[in-house]
Structure formats: structure tokens, C-alpha cells
Design a protein around this nucleic acid. Sequence first.
DNA 1: TTCTAGATTCGCT
DNA 2: GCGAATCTAGAAT
Length: 227
Amino acid sequence: MAASGAEAGNATSSGTWRSCFPGEEVLDFSGFEKGAEEAARELLGCHLLSLVGDEPSGGRIVETEAYVGPRDPACHAAERTGRTRRNAPMFGPAGTAYVYFVYGMHWCFNVVAGRPGDPEAVLIRGVEPGIGVELMRERRGRESDLTNGPARLCQAMAIDGSMNEHPLSRPPLLLLTGPRPEASQIGVSGRIGIREARDWPLRFFLKGHPDVSPASPGPSGPTGAPQ
DNA sequence: TTCTAGATTCGCT
DNA sequence: GCGAATCTAGAAT
């Protein structure tokens, strides 16, 4: 994965995040324009870093879900819905944050993919805690289950609506390169928590990883891989 | 203006 | 395993 060093160098807190993940660089999002499915695979193994309040927290992405635009009935920007104030960030450039509020109490964090005007996004469902674990425990108010779920990781990393439309190449919310998993380590299954198109094989995760979110048993099971 | 569903989580049984 | 919590966006009227 190539990196966008120039943008990283412009980051005001670049020294802070570089000390968190030495040797890693800000992700180059140009590859994400190929679409959400490709981006969801690319994001596995990458690092998500929050510098909210200048206190770093984050870790390695271990689970993602792709939402592939108007043709995807489960997507917020499905054809029947079109563009709305809520989903407008999905129509923006790849590498932008799309953060939305759901069930009256939870935030979910997505990475925008596809070309500008193509409303595709990748939901980050699971992160392996790596930096600021104590801080995340404090925010979550518990010792375990810190980042294995889309709303949990948002709470642990203090991601909320203020991060909506934030470019993920600069603080306080950054996507960094990381060790790429081998293809054999990547599991594929249907998506979780949705009604429509739930059996589409657009959920990607690291097989056997403890920080993959608890899957509801679908038609093909939590580790099923309908191809 | 009102109604309804929702990409979740957690506590209780 | 089940249901409550909670509130926003979008649809319906």
C-alpha cells in the first residue's frame, strides 16, 4: 500500500501519531476509488488512530463491511433513497469519514469509497486495541469488549458526529498503513444487523481474531463465505 | 406535523 | 434469548 507522505507531513500532530505507529504512513486513498468492496479488503490490517483531545487511541482494523452504492438496498444511499442530508458525505471523495447516529444512542464510523458522486462506504466493525487501551477502557467503562463492534469502537475512540466528513489523512482521525493479512487469513460472510441484502458476501474479517464483532447467525453462519 | 424504522448494545431472565 | 433504551432521518399524510 502506497502512502501519502506529503499530507502526513502537513498534519499538525504528525509527531504524535508517528510515535504511535512507527514506520507506518497515512493511507493513499486513490485505490479506494475502485469501490467499497475493494476498499473493505484493503482496510483489513490497516491502523485507525484517534487523537481526540490529543490523547491517542486506536488499533488495527480486523473487520469491515462494504456498502456498494445505489444498487445495494442496504446502503444508506440506495437507489430508492438517493442523496439526502444524512448520506451526503458518501457522495464525497474516497478517504472521508461518514459518521452517523443510529438507534438513538450509537455512532457508526464509515470510510467513504468510490469516485466522488458514487455513494459507497466501508463500515468499520472491529479494531484490535493497540494504542491508548487504558483510555478506551475508561471511555467504555469496562475491561473487555472495547472495540469489537461498530458502536463500541466509536465510543472507545471518541468518534462522533463531529468527525463526519473529516478527511482521514489528517488528525484528529487518521487511517494509517499496517501489516497486510494474507488472503488465506481473510474471511468473507454476509453482513450483520441489516434486513436487506444481508447475504451479500461483503463482510470481511480476520479469521479467528478475538476482536471480530459477535456475529448474528445468518443463513450461512457467522463464518460462512457465500462466494 | 406525525409516524416509523433503524448498519446496536447491554442487562435481565 | 429477549426486550428496552433512545433519537434521528425519511416517509407519509
